[in-house]
Simulated assay, not measured.
Amino acid sequence: MTSADVAVIGGSGFYSFLDDARSVPVETPYGEPSAPVTLGEVSGRRVAFLPRHGERHAFPPHLVNYRANLWALRSLGVRQVLAPCAVGGLRPDVAPGDVVVPDQLVDRTTGRAQSYVESGAVHVPFADPYCGRLAETAGRQPGIKTGGTMVVVQGPRFSTRAESQHYAAQGWSLINMTGHPEAVLARELQMCYLSIALVTDMDAGVESGEGVGQEEVFAMFARNVERLKVLLAALIGELPDPAGCTCATWADGLDLTYEVPGGRTG
């Protein structure tokens, strides 16, 4: 097995996923990915796993090589990406322990390489940042909430109370440090992408919150890793055929000015 159909990108504390996994180092034009990709089988599908922050959390959110990570997965044949991540809650309609599939994203990061486009006119549609087909499938899984906006901040610091209150006042429900540019890079490479957000805490500006600390975030994620693995395995077993999805067909008829490893899809 040297290829995969589906990828899981593990978040903070989520450093392994596959049984009897085979490690496959991948070279990319953008440097090394966060860790060697591992390949295995889950629910009858060929799956690649990559820990976003490295095997021992070597890379903080603003220094993750997102371009190398997504390119490496696409070069192995991946067409669908499931991306678990730790998030804070901004509004009372979410609570610690909830697993949420957001449907919108707001980028508040700075200085990150967020595109493969380095020349020419290639404008990527991103009105709906997550794959609708994957979201619909996830919404049928017990224990997963759907909908809401995730704001992605630069990190590595947590928000001030004023910032948190501002984000909540916009109607945004989740806050995270890694969801961008991961989602848009997947779109540029014509892959279906879905964020699967575990709420680990209520952010600093929420009335019931007392500020956020790394220890509580990591502890909550650790307590829920096995639960996430079960949810992911069930979801992988029900993923739809990616053929014809608009996540891939947006580039039909366009002259892309960057390489899509493995060839373009439609």
Rank of each mutant, 00 (worst) to 15 (best):
R46N: 14
G244A: 10
S34H: 07
G88M: 06
L90R: 02
D241C: 10
R91T: 14
F218Q: 14
M150R: 09
E238S: 13
G31K: 08
A219V: 11
D203V: 04
Y167C: 13
P261C: 02
Q170F: 13
A248Q: 13
A72V: 07
G97E: 00
M1Q: 11
C247D: 02
C245V: 08
S173T: 13
L134Y: 01
M202K: 01
P61C: 05
R161A: 15
A243S: 12
L235G: 07
P125Q: 01
G209C: 09
P142F: 14
R45S: 10
L256E: 02
P156W: 13
L239S: 05
H53L: 10
V24E: 13
F17N: 08
G262M: 06
T149K: 10
A7C: 04
L232P: 03
A21Y: 05
M191G: 03
L228V: 10
T110C: 15
I236N: 12
G155A: 10
F14L: 09
A7Y: 02
R91N: 14
C247K: 06
Q80E: 07
L231N: 04
L39H: 04
F49C: 06
L231T: 06
A21D: 11
P181R: 03
H62V: 13
Q104C: 10
C245K: 07
L39W: 05
E188N: 03
V26S: 06
G209Q: 06
E207L: 14
S208D: 15
K229F: 12
G262Y: 01
C247T: 04
I196C: 09
M177L: 09
L231Y: 07
S23E: 15
I196P: 02
E215N: 14
A7T: 00
V101E: 00
R223F: 11
Y193N: 03
G13E: 10
G44S: 10
L235E: 07
A251F: 06
L105V: 08
A72I: 05
L105D: 08
T249Q: 11
C192M: 15
V99N: 03
A222Q: 12
L76D: 03
A183V: 12
Y258E: 06
A21P: 11
D203H: 02
L82P: 04
T265M: 15
V64I: 12
K145H: 12
M220Q: 15
V42F: 11
P102I: 05
A233P: 09
Y167N: 10
L82T: 03
